[in-house]
Design a protein around this nucleic acid. Structure first.
Lengths: 142, 142
DNA sequence: ATCCCTGCAAATACTTTGCATACAA
DNA sequence: TTGTATGCAAAGTATTTGCAGGGAT
């Protein structure tokens, strides 16, 4: 795997501890954290890190295609180091956001897009509902 | 068509001029306005209307399933009186949000959802890209 | 008459910005 | 050395809330 510093350098970014920390954190989670969560997670190891820097860093990363912004209708945006467009499920009970990988779906969307007078750059599918864990817990308590 | 007052009453809401105005405005537009836009649009005819009331009203409507909230990644939420889940296109150049009606897609999503350990309540597909109008204008200027 | 709704203003949540200092190249 | 990045604090949006007065039923 390519080192984070190398990736940043290739994108023309100066390599700083903060940027490495943010990118690595995103690479090592599937939680789709928001800026605040990233900041809180890095605070222990990067005590001087500021929330503003997290926002600025995420903004650079977004511009350069290193991360993807995801808005599932909460107050804040979530971030994902998986840049390729892919569907997500959002549990409306526990709030968990999960990735889905469905090649077939992408193909279908592409086909449909071709029929529209619209040039698709990115497609975002969000399935809102109840995750398996919450459903089972609900059944137990009823 | 059922009168707005009647619809509100059936939902157990008190019928007020403000609520009628907001709901009618949403019924008569395809612009997917946000709260601010709704407020601005109603100001001329409802000079006492306040933005806070628009927010509260939209919140009630959302709870009762009279409107749908849509977040396409801007700072603010948009609202749609078409409650049935349906895909949208968002032009990343002019910002226009359009409805798509694709029954086939809904069916496909439903089938996929059945294979997941996830109970889908609502699905949201957003296609980001360049609309036909913008693409043609871009071609002329190049 | 009762209780819900409205409008104002203040509060909150999220994000961005200005600027002086610090650090990467 | 040079210019960019950081961190702080202040400012900027979007939205929510508390409360007193007003209006719908």
């Amino acid at each position: 795997m390519k080192a984070t510093a190398q990736i940043l350098k290739e994108k023309g970014l100066k390599v700083t501890p903060q940027r490495i920390a943010v990118y690595n954190m995103l690479l090592n989670t599937t939680e789709h954290p928001n800026a605040e969560t990233i900041y809180k997670a890095l605070e222990p190891t990067n005590p001087t890190m500021s929330l503003a820097t997290v926002y600025k860093t995420l903004d650079y990363f977004k511009q350069l295609g290193l991360v993807q912004e995801l808005n599932v209708g909460e107050g804040s945006s979530r971030y994902d180091a998986v840049v390729k467009c892919h569907p997500h499920t959002v549990c409306i009970q526990c709030g968990k956001v999960r990735d889905l990988y469905l090649e077939e779906l992408t193909e279908i969307h592409k086909k449909i897009a071709e029929e529209l007078d619209f040039e698709v750059r990115c497609e975002q599918l969000i399935l809102y509902g109840i995750c398996g864990k919450c459903r089972r817990e609900n059944n137990e308590n009823s």
